[in-house]
Simulated assay, not measured.
Amino acid sequence: MINPVLVEVERSGFVESRHRGAAIGIAADGGVTVRAGEPEAVIFPRSANKPMQAVAMLRSGLDLDDELLALAAGSHSGEDFHVEGTEKILAGAGLVAGDLRCPAGWPIDPEVQQEVARVGGGPSRMRMNCSG
């Protein structure tokens, strides 16, 4: 089944883009109120889950300031200040880098990659763009 067009973006009277998808609305009692497409289809939401994971971290009692909350709710490019922020988040939860379950990665910026390599570093979980 091809998912239906859920959104059309119009500019200057012309449809610029169409976005297909699946959606489901659930009432407080658990009943389905509206559905479109195939919401039961298996997907890999990847980074789209990060804001929800950040909310769960907050609700579990982790104290994050604005910068650390932004790091937890999104991807990053593996620069030193991202690694430092990730270390702070982990420390606040009583965890260390070895507790991360993401794969090792290089910084995204080629110049930063070269600098990391120049000083003897390599790919690490802390530099992986999902480590926050």
Score class of each variant (00 low, 15 high):
residue 39 P to Q: 08
residue 116 V to P: 05
residue 131 S to Q: 09
residue 80 D to W: 03
residue 130 C to N: 12
residue 27 A to W: 04
residue 123 P to L: 10
residue 39 P to G: 07
residue 14 F to N: 14
residue 53 Q to R: 15
residue 122 G to S: 12
residue 132 G to R: 00
residue 22 A to E: 13
residue 80 D to V: 07
residue 45 P to H: 03
residue 109 D to S: 07
residue 98 G to T: 06
residue 112 V to C: 04
residue 77 S to Y: 04
residue 8 E to K: 15
residue 120 G to S: 02
residue 116 V to I: 13
residue 79 E to G: 09
residue 45 P to G: 05
residue 1 M to W: 06
residue 19 H to C: 01
residue 50 K to L: 03
residue 101 R to G: 07
residue 64 L to I: 05
residue 51 P to Q: 14
residue 59 R to P: 00
residue 61 G to P: 09
residue 22 A to R: 08
residue 123 P to S: 13
residue 105 G to T: 06
residue 41 A to R: 15
residue 107 P to C: 12
residue 111 E to H: 08
residue 71 L to H: 00
residue 35 R to P: 00
residue 68 L to Y: 03
residue 114 Q to L: 14
residue 55 V to N: 02
residue 31 G to W: 03
residue 91 A to P: 06
residue 104 A to G: 01
residue 14 F to Q: 15
residue 17 S to H: 10
residue 97 A to K: 11
residue 22 A to G: 13
residue 59 R to D: 14
residue 125 R to T: 00
residue 47 S to G: 08
residue 74 G to E: 09
residue 98 G to Q: 09
residue 93 A to K: 07
residue 6 L to H: 06
residue 4 P to E: 04
residue 105 G to L: 11
residue 112 V to D: 05
residue 118 R to G: 10
residue 131 S to M: 10
residue 80 D to Q: 14
residue 117 A to Q: 13
residue 35 R to Y: 01
residue 46 R to G: 06
residue 50 K to Y: 02
residue 51 P to V: 09
residue 132 G to K: 02
residue 29 D to S: 10
residue 43 I to S: 12
residue 21 G to K: 02
residue 56 A to F: 11
residue 61 G to H: 11
residue 104 A to T: 04
residue 34 V to W: 11
residue 41 A to E: 13
residue 121 G to T: 05
residue 59 R to S: 12
residue 31 G to V: 03
residue 69 L to Y: 10
residue 45 P to K: 04
residue 99 D to G: 12
residue 111 E to N: 09
residue 60 S to K: 06
residue 127 R to W: 07
residue 70 A to I: 02
residue 132 G to V: 00
residue 90 L to R: 07
residue 70 A to D: 06
residue 120 G to L: 03
residue 79 E to Y: 01
residue 101 R to V: 13
residue 49 N to K: 10
residue 30 G to D: 11
residue 70 A to V: 03
residue 115 E to D: 13
residue 129 N to A: 05
residue 126 M to L: 15
residue 104 A to F: 03
residue 52 M to Q: 13
residue 40 E to D: 14
residue 82 H to R: 02
residue 42 V to I: 14
residue 103 P to K: 05
residue 42 V to P: 02
residue 53 Q to V: 12
residue 126 M to G: 05
residue 50 K to C: 01
residue 73 A to C: 09
residue 61 G to N: 10
residue 132 G to W: 00
residue 127 R to V: 04
residue 47 S to Y: 11
residue 18 R to Q: 14
residue 91 A to K: 14
residue 57 M to D: 04
residue 109 D to P: 00
residue 119 V to E: 15
residue 37 G to N: 04
residue 8 E to D: 14
residue 60 S to F: 06
residue 103 P to D: 09
residue 69 L to P: 03
residue 17 S to G: 14
residue 41 A to N: 10
residue 103 P to C: 06
residue 23 A to S: 14
residue 27 A to Y: 04
residue 27 A to V: 02
residue 102 C to N: 15
residue 91 A to T: 09
residue 24 I to T: 11
residue 72 A to T: 00
residue 79 E to F: 02
residue 36 A to H: 09
residue 17 S to C: 11
residue 21 G to R: 01
residue 103 P to S: 12
residue 68 L to G: 02
residue 8 E to G: 06
residue 112 V to M: 07
residue 116 V to Q: 07
residue 68 L to A: 06
residue 29 D to V: 07
residue 63 D to E: 15
residue 60 S to V: 01
residue 89 I to Y: 00
